[in-house]
Design a protein around this nucleic acid. Structure first.
Lengths: 74, 74
DNA sequence: CTGAAATGTATGATATATTTAACATTGAGT
DNA sequence: ACTCAATGTTAAATATATCATACATTTCAG
């Protein structure tokens, strides 16, 4: 069948390098709840484009340094 | 108040340069309905990150060439 | 070790994206 | 002008993201 992809992110790493920002702090800055950050970090579901952009903005990093769409099979 | 942003995209232009691909063709390749492409092109709502990635993939363009998060006020 | 803070997990409610279907409008070709 | 394909619009139903709350587990400073 056609190639399979998954969305990955580097949020946990970025939090660590951002002075060990907590999930709660990130959630507050982004304007969502801690559970939303949790779910995204864990890959439970893919965020809305809006939330994804806001997360990249909070870390001040280019979008593709935070989120990627990676091929997992062919 | 805090800065306002809006999500913009270049889908219509990219369709034009992709041999004038129709909304229906794009929708089929992405795996959504034509109305979804319509709504996204028109900015009626912001797509899921998954659909956004798929659209960029169909056009074979870097993500940030398709979608942008632009400041509209300060 | 103990306790508080951070992270993880689960569930039901709400908001939003997407589908489905139907119809209206536009635009280009004949 | 006619016609057909493409685009645009609307409304109701469904799927998924997000919220709100509650509780369990990990982690680490004291």
């Amino acid at each position: 069948m056609s190639a399979q992809y998954k969305i990955t992110n580097t949020i946990k790493t970025l939090r660590f390098f951002a002075n060990e920002m907590t999930q709660q702090e990130l959630a507050s800055k982004v304007g969502v709840t801690r559970q939303t950050i949790m779910a995204i970090e864990k890959g439970k579901y893919s965020p809305s484009l809006e939330v994804a952009f806001k997360i990249a903005l909070v870390f001040g990093r280019p979008f593709d340094e935070v989120f990627a769409y990676e091929k997992i099979t062919d």
